[in-house]
């Protein structure tokens, strides 16, 4: 059984205090608690501070290109469905350049987990407006304040039919680890948006801000995580400052929807076509 140390790899180079440390810690804890084997896991990341997660987590890691962690991760899973596959990205990576893939990954419902480290800013490129930057937020690329409406990832996930929608906060690793555990255990595509403060470039969406504004759905006995439309309403009312599992439902996965798709990992199977199959297939062209 793997222990916490087994899920550690290279020493992170994130700024001291970066929210992404909390995400890494929560993922490591969740993996230990689920009894996962690092050699049976793949973390696929995009580009940005969040993209470094694949290098810092002690499993197989694939650092893809900007915005494309989702299709890359889906490819890994399709090749070997016996692996536990996670995709990770940031708000720029996932809701800017890669937004299209997010919607289609939810539709497709391949059994992977998507962690977005949402800091409302472009960190690695030193402080430009991101798709989730609040309206009016002043940055290098919006010196008079952002005028565009931010992307609303939770709403998007809920209306797109995502089977598992959650939100966590780097400042609450215990809750986040519990959410991540459930997300990995969920059969189908699971989405976890994580408030992961950028301590260097975002002085607005800080730990303090989230600590004083975020409410946990676990603390609200009236919250029904089985009702997509109720969740939409509650998320809207709370201005999306809710954490916990916001919605979970059953949907047929892409893998199960394709009845003849192998139940075993394809990567490990025989690649040779039998003489018999060869002749049969060729008969189509007569």
């Amino acid at each position: 059984m793997a222990i916490l140390a087994d899920f550690k790899a290279e020493k992170p180079t994130w700024c001291p205090g970066c929210g992404d440390f909390g995400v890494l810690n929560a993922l490591q804890r969740a993996s230990v608690e689920l009894g996962l084997d690092p050699e049976e896991m793949v973390v696929v990341s995009g580009i940005g501070c969040s993209g470094k997660l694949s290098a810092y987590f002690g499993s197989y890691g694939l650092h893809s290109i900007h915005g494309r962690s989702l299709p890359t991760a889906q490819g890994v899973k399709l090749a070997n469905r016996e692996l536990t596959v996670l995709a990770a990205g940031g708000d720029g990576d996932g809701f800017g350049i890669g937004l299209g893939h997010f919607i289609h990954a939810m539709r497709r419902n391949i059994d992977i987990t998507y962690l977005v480290m949402d800091n409302h800013i472009y960190g690695l490129t030193t402080g430009q407006t991101s798709p989730t930057s609040d309206a009016g937020m002043i940055t290098k690329t919006a010196p008079t304040g952002a005028v565009e409406e931010p992307v609303h990832p939770l709403h998007l996930a809920l209306v797109t039919g995502c089977g598992f929608v959650a939100q966590g906060f780097s400042g609450d690793i215990v809750q986040l680890a519990t959410i991540v555990k459930r997300a990995i255990a969920h059969k189908g595509f699971s989405f976890v948006n994580i408030f992961s403060p950028c301590v260097t470039y975002n002085k607005q969406n800080t730990y303090e801000f989230y600590k004083s504004h975020v409410k946990k759905v676990e603390d609200d006995p009236t919250y029904d995580a089985g009702n997509r439309f109720a969740a939409l309403e509650r998320v809207t009312e709370a201005n999306a400052l809710l954490t916990g599992v916001l919605y979970e439902g059953d949907r047929v996965t892409f893998e199960d929807g394709h009845a003849k798709y192998s139940t075993k990992g394809l990567a490990t199977q025989e690649h040779t076509l039998s003489d018999d199959d060869y002749v049969k297939l060729l008969a189509d062209f007569r």
């Binding site: 290109i65 299709p71 890359t72 490819g75 399709l78 090749a79 299209g100 192998s262 199977q269």
Partner: peptide, 24 residues
């Protein structure tokens, strides 16, 4: 036992191909 995925665009098509090839 295989499958075709109709992707959202060609960027997804190739990155998915890369992911699957990487995985063997």
């Amino acid at each position: 036992g295989g499958v075709v995925v109709q992707t959202e665009d060609e960027i997804a098509a190739l990155t998915m191909t890369i992911g699957a090839s990487y995985a063997g």
